[in-house]
């Protein structure tokens, strides 16, 4: 499939899901009235519902899904490992730890940007540790094992910090940080995450050519003039920026960066430069679809988004391991 047709099809799907995300919610107002309220600002309380609740939710779903798909594709390209995914290998978990520390120390209340910055710092540490342990020359198994260790450590520290909080609700927040949710976010979170996500996305998309060269092996890539050290640095910072910002506002949402690049890879000829933009659109579609499903399945329950992505993603992951195992034999 040509790039234009693939991206066009994904874009159309994304548009439908974005409108669905704006239209579906417990308020139970008609589609026409809802859209009129959104654009004209007239129509009573539905205006606040559309502009303050649904719009930020749909925008965040779009942004977080796109960056998760993009960073998953970039990580898999760099590590040449189909199992690499920010949630699975502990980057999201470490970002959540950073965010929780910023919230519990009061830093986030004193200084608004402290929340995404702390999450970014957590993500940088995780990516750096993973690169050191299981860089391009590490096996798939090393990466997954390192990821399990990083995830477990970050998860334990997150639970520790939240359990020690004087706030009785903090411990209940553990579910949010581990599973993620877009419920009842506001435009504040959109503005908080947007600059980091834009910067990180531009950084990751700029790596396309280098990652393409890397598919031929490190020596070939260097011979083609790719600066591997610089590529690694940009990848680490770009991934940390998008995953950190997304986790800081919506918790850790897993498996998106795993499933989407894998589904789209056959249509992109296995070239990271083509896979990355497609995965961004596909990831946004997946998170928006999951977030609409969450609202349809249990409208009054705040079912966590990560529950759905994991229900889809975990069987997928098992299949991937099975394939990797057979290929390695």
């Amino acid at each position: 499939m040509s790039d234009r047709r693939l991206l066009g099809a994904l874009g159309a799907l994304l548009l439908v899901l974005f409108v669905a995300s704006l239209a579906i919610g417990p308020a139970g107002e008609g589609f026409g009235a809802s859209m009129r309220a959104l654009f004209t600002g007239e129509g009573g309380p539905i205006v606040a519902v559309m502009r303050e609740i649904r719009l930020p939710r749909a925008l965040l779903g779009l942004m977080i899904g796109a960056t998760l798909g993009l960073s998953g594709a970039a990580l898999q390209g760099f590590l040449r490992n189909p199992l690499a995914e920010p949630g699975l290998i502990g980057i999201s978990g470490s970002a959540a730890l950073g965010a929780v520390i910023a919230l519990q120390t009061g830093l986030a209340a004193a200084f608004l940007l402290a929340l995404p910055l702390a999450a970014l710092a957590g993500a940088v540490i995780a990516v750096a540790v993973l690169m050191a342990l299981a860089g391009p020359r590490g096996t798939a198994l090393t990466l997954i094992l390192a990821g399990i260790a990083v995830s477990a450590f970050a998860g334990a520290l997150t639970a520790l910090v939240l359990n020690l909080s004087p706030n009785p609700y903090a411990a209940a927040d553990i579910v949010f940080w581990m599973m993620g949710s877009l419920a009842d976010r506001s435009m504040v979170q959109v503005w908080l995450a947007l600059p980091f996500m834009l910067t990180g996305s531009v950084m990751l998309l700029s790596l396309g050519r280098g990652l393409d060269a890397l598919t031929l092996g490190e020596d070939a890539a260097e011979a083609m003039g790719v600066n591997l050290a610089r590529l690694r640095l940009v990848l680490v910072l770009g991934t940390a920026a998008v995953v950190g910002a997304g986790t800081a506002v919506a918790g850790a949402i897993g498996f998106v960066g795993l499933v989407v690049p894998h589904v789209l890879r056959p249509y992109t000829g296995g070239r990271p430069s083509r896979l990355m933009p497609a995965s961004a659109l596909g990831g946004a579609a997946m998170v928006l679809a999951a977030d609409v499903a969450v609202r349809l399945i249990a409208p009054d329950r705040d079912l966590k988004l990560g529950v759905l992505t994991a229900l889809v993603g975990a069987p997928f992951f098992l299949r991937l391991i099975w394939q990797t195992r057979r290929a390695g034999r």
């Binding site: 417990p26 139970g28 309380p45 649904r54 519990q104 706030n167 609700y169 927040d173």
Partner: peptide, 25 residues
Amino acid sequence: PLERLVMAAPSVIVTSHPYPGASRA
């Protein structure tokens, strides 16, 4: 759901004071 509360526009909202320390809840 917050949406339902906004739509209903109740005349009184009964809520609680936040505890010390932060929580996303």
